[in-house]
Design a protein around this nucleic acid. Structure first.
Lengths: 186, 186
DNA sequence: TCGGTGATGTCAGTCAGTGACATCACCCAG
DNA sequence: CTGGGTGATGTCACTGACTGACATCACCGA
């Protein structure tokens, strides 16, 4: 028998989600999360940089996949097309995770501190998109603008998806949002 | 003679900017800022919600002006045109503040916590744009997309302005950025 | 079987942020 | 004038996030 139950990080993630949803982020202490996960608060901070980060584990993986899709877009694709490919590639990350995404998003939306953290993740995504576009030979100013716009589309589409009364396919919603952008700036 | 020097908030803002620039945000304590301003830490928190907010005083005023410009755009203007008017209206807020803006931005860029706070201010701006557009009769989904895109333009243009080697007019840079967006999504 | 390794616990400490209450210059009504 | 009200500040005690240093101990490979 192991000295410790395995996957402390996973237990901490689940405990945090449950407590944040139950009684709110601010009224939850790290000590309580750690207790529920069967570890000490010190261990919490060994797995997550701070009380917010526990809700954002996995975001690097999502970003990595999206950037790969930008880089993998056909050479003929323009900057906005490449970014669109990156946005659409996020779809598979969310399959069968709609309920989880919805609950997580509800917690984040209700908490300014968590919204701040989410925004910086989006900024990181934008920076990664920018770099990927520059690797494709796009001029710097155009690259950052396309990246920012792409992230805006991703956010709006994600929002639409979790709010959608029917369980629409996320990829379809993203396509529709990209189409909206085109007509908007036509 | 007054019991206290007037404008404690102003002194706190200046002290914070100076200390953050000198030794960095993280290595500055609120007590040190308060000391330099000649007050106690408790008074700091009476003027600013937290250690970050001291750098963002005045952002409500900027947002208010930008939203007014969106609402004041001609009735014939489309959603994106109205948002563009809002973005351009920010220009006058920054006249003769380029050096200050540059120093402030350097501090913010160097500090993740401050970048988070800046992002939520941008999000607040986007939400305000969205509401203004809806008041103009724009459909909700279109409104938020136009708002997000407009904020992206504002951020990129502001970045270009503070980085510009020549002291270009901020309004001109914003016009150019809007033009770039048009060609990008053409 | 023994020493190294990695994940954890323990403890003491710093600092952000808050609530409750005291203080005191200033101003206005009487 | 003059006493009470007001608003900005100070003081103090407290909670909770986060960190550094060091101890512990199951496991694993030489």
């Amino acid at each position: 028998m192991a000295r410790w139950e395995p996957d402390a990080a996973g237990r901490l993630r689940e405990a945090a989600m449950a407590l944040y949803a139950e009684r709110g982020y601010e009224r939850t202490t790290v000590a309580e999360i750690a207790d529920r996960a069967g570890v000490t608060a010190r261990t919490f901070f060994r797995h997550f940089a701070d009380k917010r980060e526990v809700l954002f584990a996995g975001s690097e993986e999502l970003e990595r996949r999206m950037v790969e899709a930008v880089l993998a877009a056909p050479e003929s694709a323009g900057p906005m097309d490449a970014v669109a490919a990156g946005v659409l590639a996020s779809g598979e990350f969310f399959v069968d995770r709609r309920e989880h995404s919805r609950r997580r998003q509800a917690v984040i939306t209700a908490t300014p501190e968590l919204r701040e953290r989410e925004f910086i993740k989006m900024a990181s995504l934008a920076a990664a998109f920018t770099e990927a576009l520059r690797k494709r030979g796009v001029a710097p100013e155009i690259a950052s603008l396309a990246a920012e716009t792409g992230v805006a589309v991703f956010r709006v589409a994600f929002e639409r998806w979790v709010a959608d009364p029917q369980d629409a396919d996320i990829t379809e919603i993203m396509r529709a949002t990209l189409a909206d952008l085109s007509s908007l700036t036509a």
